Amino acid sequence: MARAKYKKRSDGRYLVQIQTGFDENGKQKFKNIYAKTIPELEKKINTFKYNLDRGIVVDDQNLTFKEWANNWLDTYKTNVTTRTRKRYKSIIDIQLKPLHNIKLSKLKTVNIQKTINELTTSVSLTIKILKQIIKQAMINELIFKDLMLGVSFSTQEPKKRRQLNEQEREAIEKADFSAKERTFVYLCLYAGLRRGEALALKRNDIDFKNGILHISNTVIYNDNNTPELKGTTKTLAGVRDIPITNKLESVLKEYIKTNVKGMFLFSSRNHTLVTKTSYQNMWKQIIRKMNSVSKIPINEITAHHLRHTYATDLFYAGVDIKTCQYLLGHSSIKTTLDIYTHLDSDPANVAKKIDEYYISNQSNISQ
């Protein structure tokens, strides 16, 4: 009788050991590979050997969480932007530091829970990254159960972004902005552009003849100050054409005519993209000038508050939800709906709208 090629365990799985190298004492090191069937086992063996030849596989017996997390980032996150990669790396190095020296094979749910309990910033992103790291470790058979299943997360809802109030909108109209400042504010407030989309605008993105802004680029800051022009916006849905309102048109035309010398609407003295520091200084000036004409203190306003206000204006103007989604560049309609669900929750307002619809509809029937 031919000897079985692979050993079958009492739990029904097949097992094979593959040598991965030698330890510091010259002793051979092995990797255990398991599968329920021989074809599945042989597929895993081939994949393992392929990765081993390329240095992707590491010794999982002494592999620490930090080593695996960095391996995960280098191997499975090669398609993310430089900015996103740096953000992930920061989360691993700082937020997940309490887990660094724990061997992956010894990692427990309680270790993860204690780490999450101590988080004060970037909680959602940290949890998202942890889930991906643990899931990939399971796929690679470095751990054999989902350690995130027993972890409890805070149910506290994130703060909802708000639109500008009446005093803040009045301050924008009264403030003694420079042409550059007012143009930037109006692009966010009356076209709903994201900060990076506004900073990336070029002369040829503006079509006054057809009354359209062509949005297809964004500016990101990969380090503390240096700008980078990306060929796509935040999402693929961000590539869009936005109508130029009357409120925006006159400001845009005057600004381009008298202030724009190079390719970009907003640029440094040598006509290159503005640095992060330059943008921050401009925004501080915008807030300072708003405060100089406001009856109430204005502090916690960002460019995104202007964009959010544009979104709510679309709603109150009666623009349908799918058009709103397109104009805002949301890849998911849920994002658009999340903005709108709280806007008209007053029963009296809802009843008024329904009554107005019934009256209008009845008039059409009678005619």
Rank of each mutant, 00 (worst) to 15 (best):
D320S: 03
R269A: 07
R307S: 14
L125K: 15
L104M: 15
L63Y: 13
M1K: 15
K44Y: 05
D59T: 02
K108A: 06
N225S: 03
A348P: 01
P39F: 02
D11E: 06
L130R: 09
L107F: 13
G55H: 07
K160W: 00
R54K: 15
L213G: 12
H305L: 03
K135W: 10
F48G: 04
P227M: 06
G318Q: 04
K322C: 00
G192D: 11
K289G: 08
L252Q: 09
T183D: 02
T323G: 04
L41A: 01
V219C: 15
N270C: 06
G55P: 03
G262T: 00
R182C: 04
M1Y: 12
I212T: 15
K66S: 06
N349E: 05
H304T: 12
T275S: 14
N62H: 12
Y221P: 14
L201M: 13
T126A: 07
V57C: 15
T121R: 07
G150W: 01
H100N: 05
D74R: 14
K49E: 11
K108C: 02
T275C: 09
F266H: 06
Y357H: 04
K8V: 01
P158A: 09
L199P: 14
E254A: 05
R195E: 08
I172W: 04
H305Y: 12
L107D: 01
T218S: 15
K180I: 03
Q61F: 07
E168A: 12
Q132M: 08
K44N: 04
K86D: 11
D313S: 10
I139N: 14
D223Q: 08
A351N: 06
E40G: 07
K43V: 01
V110N: 02
D146A: 08
S268R: 10
I18K: 14
